[in-house]
Design a protein around this nucleic acid. Structure first.
Length: 551
RNA sequence: GCGCCCGUAGCUCAGUGGAUAGAGCGGUGGCCUCCGGAGCCAGAGGUCGGAGGUUCGAAUCCUCUCGGGCGCUCCA
């Protein structure tokens, strides 16, 4: 509901309470804040408050009695048509159509900005996601990270944060060595030469493809391990960037581990921790005293062979984020990294930052299905479905919608057959179809010479069908839905909202004609469906999904 | 053994301490002379894994327990 309406109703409730107090019908000392909610079911009205239940014990009356007393003293108003006391003591408000119509004007005026707010107050946020190392192609699981990270960034921008999207990867160290050795061994094998594969080698077909490419294109190059490693990294990164581009996932910055060594950031950060007494030596290794900051035990940051562990550059990286002026960090990590959160938070606290300034989303696993059949997902064994395969098979829009449909902390079952099917079962088409349908209505209006007017030129009070008012109420909720998604760092609320809005439109379309004999009525209804179209567009845009005019 | 996530309709899942726990799909029965049937409508389907507790009120919070997943390394 719009803020204006909510404020008006809240004011009515306060007035009701005040008057009851003056007449000494409520012995009240302390008034808690009055909250309004949108009731779970339509029969309970458009807005409701549980204030009477909260006050009951204080004023020593039954909750229902408190509600009745308050309602008795609420003055008449043009926004509210009916007030009821229901259930254990809820006060339910039914809004007048006149209170709803202004939403249509707001949407027309704000257009692509409908749903925007400034609640983020321009605060700078760095959101880091995917951050897959270039040791193989992006998998379907990375697809979920990409979809969630990108959509979340869009949503946060919409509510007034300044958002920076970043991808971090390790381009030095053990894993990259194994990558180089895997390609090298495969290359020698292709040439029929004797070779040994490293332990834990990467086994995917892409290793062979890279080796073949080297055999084809790099006849005269000196081929030491460094060469294989660099070549593989470059090739894999090219393909990662291409995948992201086709998946419409944007990044503002790329940070590689090597940068942290070369800029001195790693050294600087470690020295600061040492100086402040957060690092100690034991058994030839350097340990970070993370247990002092709530981690379950201390962690090695430099191994006894002098090499840093994975944690060290990661601490330096996060410190670097703060030094660049970001004081609100979001990391999206896989469930295999949840044990990592404690030490990371310990580190940022040791470096003088608020623990709460880092929010970590643990994004649960993706299981791919083809109908009933579960598909294998093992990076090491080289048996996995790549993001590229998903994109080729179901397309960007369906893939993104499916990745976004669930809460981040529950496992996602992704049925490729379902995502691919252009049928009623597939929610992404359901939503897009509503958009295309409205475009088609507008086209029809143009053919018939029905003018598409502005809100001010139309008699909106002709919109009095129950379905029309329901749609307007749904439209009015959009800004709050976006706000809620931002607050919870959960984009999935938007997918269900869009399904609901599309459902309202389809239902309406089947029951009523937008373009009919009555010109004035047609004009009013055109305003309504245009507002639905704008809102669908805005919602889909936030999710990175297209809003096609024809399908 | 310890930590995190999940357990809600046949299936996939929503549900920020509030009302008779919702939606989509599937299954059943209807709706195309009509702006796009990739659509709509109607009815069926539940001991919210289980047991205690907290309070005016618990799917939601706490404790225990059972099932599934993922971690628990001087790996990344």
């Amino acid at each position: 509901m719009t803020r204006e309406v909510k404020e008006a109703v809240t004011e009515l409730i306060r007035e009701g309470i005040d008057r009851a107090r003056e007449k000494e019908e409520l012995a009240l000392c302390d008034l808690p804040p009055v909250y309004l909610e949108v009731p779970s079911e339509k029969q309970y009205g458009d807005l409701a408050t549980s204030i009477a239940l909260q006050l009951a014990s204080q004023v020593k009356l039954s909750p229902r009695r408190v509600a009745e007393v308050i309602v008795k003293h609420i003055p008449q108003s043009s926004t509210v048509s009916q007030i009821e006391v229901a259930g254990p003591g809820f006060i339910n408000f039914f809004l007048t159509p006149e209170a709803l119509y202004p939403v249509l004007g707001d949407i027309e005026e704000e257009g692509a900005n409908y749903g925007r707010s400034d609640s983020g107050k321009g605060k700078r946020v760095l959101i880091e996601f995917i951050s897959a190392n270039p040791t193989g192609p992006l998998t379907a699981a990375h697809g979920r990270h990409g979809a969630v990270g990108d959509a979340l960034a869009n949503i946060l921008q919409m509510v007034g944060y300044r958002v920076y999207r970043e991808y971090y990867y390790n381009d030095v160290g053990h894993q990259m060595d194994i990558l180089g050795k895997s390609v090298q061994a495969r290359y020698h094998q292709l040439r029929g030469e004797e070779t040994t594969f490293p332990e834990d080698d990467y086994k995917g077909n892409y290793i062979t493809h890279i080796a073949q490419e080297i055999a084809r294109e790099c006849e005269d190059v000196k081929k030491d391990l460094g060469f294989f490693r660099r070549f593989a990294e470059e090739k894999l990164f090219e393909s990662i960037k291409k995948d992201l581009e086709d998946f419409a996932v944007q990044f503002d910055g790329w940070v590689k581990e090597k940068d942290l060594y070369e800029s001195g950031q790693l050294k600087k950060t470690m020295e600061r921790l040492k100086k402040e007494g957060h690092i100690y030596e034991k058994e030839g290794a350097l340990w970070f005293r993370s247990s002092r900051f709530g981690d379950e035990k201390d962690r090695v940051v430099e191994k006894s062979d002098g090499q840093p562990t994975y944690l060290a550059p990661d601490i330096a990286y996060h410190q670097n984020k703060y030094e660049r002026g970001f004081h609100c960090l979001i990391d999206i990590l896989g469930p295999d990294h949840h044990g990592y959160v404690g030490r990371l938070k310990a580190a940022i606290e040791a470096l003088g930052h608020e623990k709460e300034s880092l929010r970590v989303i643990i994004l649960q696993l993706v299981s791919l299905y083809r109908g009933k059949e579960k598909l294998p997902m093992s990076t090491r064994a080289g048996e996995f479905i790549t993001l590229r395969q998903v994109l080729d098979e179901v397309g960007k829009d369906a893939a993104r919608f499916f990745f976004l449909m669930r809460t981040t902390n529950s496992h996602l079952n992704f049925d490729l057959n379902l995502a691919k099917s252009q049928s009623t079962e597939n929610p992404v088409y359901y939503v897009q179809y509503a958009h295309a349908r409205i475009c088609s209505i507008l086209e029809f209006a143009a053919e018939r010479g029905v003018e598409v007017n502005k809100v001010g030129e139309v008699d909106l009070s002709l919109l009095k069908e129950k379905e029309e008012l329901e749609i307007i109420k749904t439209l009015a909720q959009f800004p709050e839905v976006v706000e809620g998604c931002a607050r919870a760092l959960e984009p999935h609320g938007l997918t269900s909202y869009l399904q609901e809005l599309a459902g309202g439109l389809h239902n309406y379309y089947n029951k009523f004609r937008v373009i009919g004999e009555d010109r004035n009525l047609s004009s009013a209804r055109l305003i309504l469906v245009k507002a639905v179209r704008t809102t669908l567009q805005n919602g889909l845009h936030l999710l990175g999904i297209s809003a096609p005019e024809k399908m």
